[in-house]
Design a protein around this nucleic acid. Structure first.
Length: 191
DNA sequence: AGGAAGATCTACT
DNA sequence: GTAGATCTTCCTA
């Protein structure tokens, strides 16, 4: 019996949450279907002090989830695709972790249908790809994935692997520190 | 109402 | 490696 991650896990510095999400399992229920994947690549984003963050220019309607409770989802659009983020920050702060790639585990046939391809290595390698594969869109914005009632959860999975880091992908003004984290030499990491 | 930007992806050379 | 597609949202007028 694996238990779902609680709010306290997400109520920390986004960098630590991004690191600790590696190797965990993303569970997504959709209709009668279950999708599961191991998170293999993440990026941490902060609030007003992070020029690459969606929160950088202040509170808007579309980004208000970043100010909401840790463990909520923050979903927004870039170039036709939906970005899947989990809100992560200390109380009264702002931040989120972008899930950039997962290794598909369950529901692979259905993911292939959603993506209209049959190459397993291309299914979920990238933030826009994985949301299509997992049937995730902005209707899920700001839902609480620490609730039992939610149809999305994070549960424990693997713990033994090597972690690597880099600059965040696709951002013009990055921070000095590396804020992208991934499981070293995993085939499902993007790029 | 129109333009520009963007945490992307795909197809092509 | 680069160009073009595509769409949500914001900013200016």
């Amino acid at each position: 019996m694996t238990s779902i991650f609680k709010r306290i896990f997400f109520q920390r510095d986004p960098e630590n949450v991004a690191l600790d999400l590696l190797g965990t399992k993303l569970v997504r229920k959709f209709d009668l279907q279950i999708f599961e994947g191991m998170i293999v690549e993440t990026e941490a984003y902060y609030g007003e002090k992070d020029p690459a963050s969606r929160a950088y220019n202040g509170l808007k309607f579309y980004n208000k989830a970043m100010w909401s409770l840790p463990g909520n989802l923050f979903i927004y659009n870039v170039h036709k695709y939906w970005m899947f983020n989990i809100v992560a920050h200390y109380p009264n702060e702002v931040g989120a972790v972008l899930i950039r790639a997962v290794e598909p585990l369950t529901g692979i046939e259905e993911m292939m249908k959603n993506r209209q391809i049959d190459d397993i290595y291309q299914l979920t390698k990238g933030p826009g790809k994985l949301t299509i594969a997992f049937n995730i869109d902005n209707s899920l914005n700001e839902i609480d994935i620490t609730s039992e009632k939610s149809r999305i959860h994070i549960v424990k999975y693997k713990t033994d692997f090597k972690i690597a880091s880099s600059k965040r992908i696709g951002v013009k003004k990055d921070l000095k520190r590396n804020m992208r984290f991934f499981i070293d030499s995993n085939r499902y990491v993007s790029k």
